[in-house]
């Protein structure tokens, strides 16, 4: 157990020294400021907009959900960037630089090392994602007086999505060099987002084939499904035309949702983690 803490501290210190946190904090503050500006102008104009009488759309819900959806996307993206940089060279990258061998020669065990890297990165990213998510909610809530239907769960699901990415990135770090792993993870992330958007399009066009393809992608890359499920929950109770229009937007969706996908995400992390541990145990360093 102490060995886990030693390695967590080791990884944490690396992140601090490589100025990762400094970069992330600066960019996050910049994002939150821009997001506040967007909220400010959107809700200022909102009071002057009245929809045509025969179109029954709740403009405040529409704008609020759209903005929170945007901030959730940014939170996921920033969280994934942080996760990837914390883990992309954890095994092969560090072994190539000769940093790993002195640690692995000690009696701590390779699995302890990898699990500790997961816990360390997971703790940092979870704290980060929840902070940014709730900051986004507060900004929209205080400037626009709109709060999502579900407050806590979408944040938890975003954090869960980032944990899935950490597991994938650690597995990648066992089999790929740092650069290749970074490219692979961002491509998977992009593929997941495209699949999600495809699902929205399929929904709008009422194409079952496209919806099916998107659902398959959601199960294969559950970070995307969790994010979509979080989006769904912010307007869980929106109905009628407002709900329909939100479903069509880029931040609508969730054709795979609920406890099934949440449980699957946990199982998925365990499977990916096991493959990573087994391949690491067999790797020549």
């Amino acid at each position: 157990m102490t060995a886990v803490w030693v390695i967590v501290g080791y990884g944490f210190r690396e992140a601090v020294r490589r100025k990762m946190f400094a970069v992330v904090i600066v960019l996050t503050v910049a994002f939150l400021f821009l997001f506040w500006l967007a909220n400010h102008y959107v809700f200022k104009d909102l009071s002057t907009i009245t929809p045509p009488r025969d179109v029954n759309v709740d403009t405040r819900t529409f704008a609020g959900a759209f903005l929170v959806g945007l901030s959730m996307f940014a939170t996921l993206f920033l969280g994934v960037v942080l996760a990837v940089f914390l883990t992309l060279g954890a095994v092969t990258g560090d072994a190539e630089r000769g940093l790993l061998q002195p640690l692995v020669a000690r009696p701590i065990g390779r699995s302890t090392l990898l699990v500790a890297r997961f816990l360390g990165a997971g703790a940092v990213c979870t704290a980060y994602v929840l902070t940014v998510y709730f900051a986004g909610l507060l900004i929209t809530g205080l400037t626009g007086h709109w709060w999502p239907d579900q407050v806590a769960w979408p944040g938890v699901e975003l954090a869960g999505g980032v944990l899935v990415v950490i597991a994938l990135s650690l597995l990648g770090s066992v089999v790929l060099s740092s650069t290749a792993n970074g490219i692979a993870i961002f491509m998977l992330f992009g593929a997941g987002l495209v699949a999600g958007l495809l699902g929205s399009i399929g929904h709008a066009l009422n194409s079952h084939t496209i919806e099916h393809a998107s659902a398959v992608a959601s199960w294969a890359l559950p970070f995307e499904a969790l994010y979509q499920d979080g989006l769904r929950m912010i307007t869980e109770h929106a109905s009628g035309l407002t709900g329909f229009l939100l479903q069509l937007g880029p931040f609508g969706g969730a054709y795979v949702h609920g406890w099934g996908i949440r449980l699957w995400a946990v199982v998925y992390v365990l499977i990916v983690g096991t493959i990573a541990l087994v391949s690491f145990a067999r790797k020549n360093l």
Binding site: Y10, R13, E14, R17, R97, G98, L99, Q101, P102, A105, R106, P107
Partner: peptide, 14 residues
């Protein structure tokens, strides 16, 4: 591993 000390040919400390 508990019994040994090792100096690798190519190593680096942070």
């Amino acid at each position: 591993r508990a019994e040994l000390g090792y100096l690798a040919e190519m190593f680096r400390f942070p």
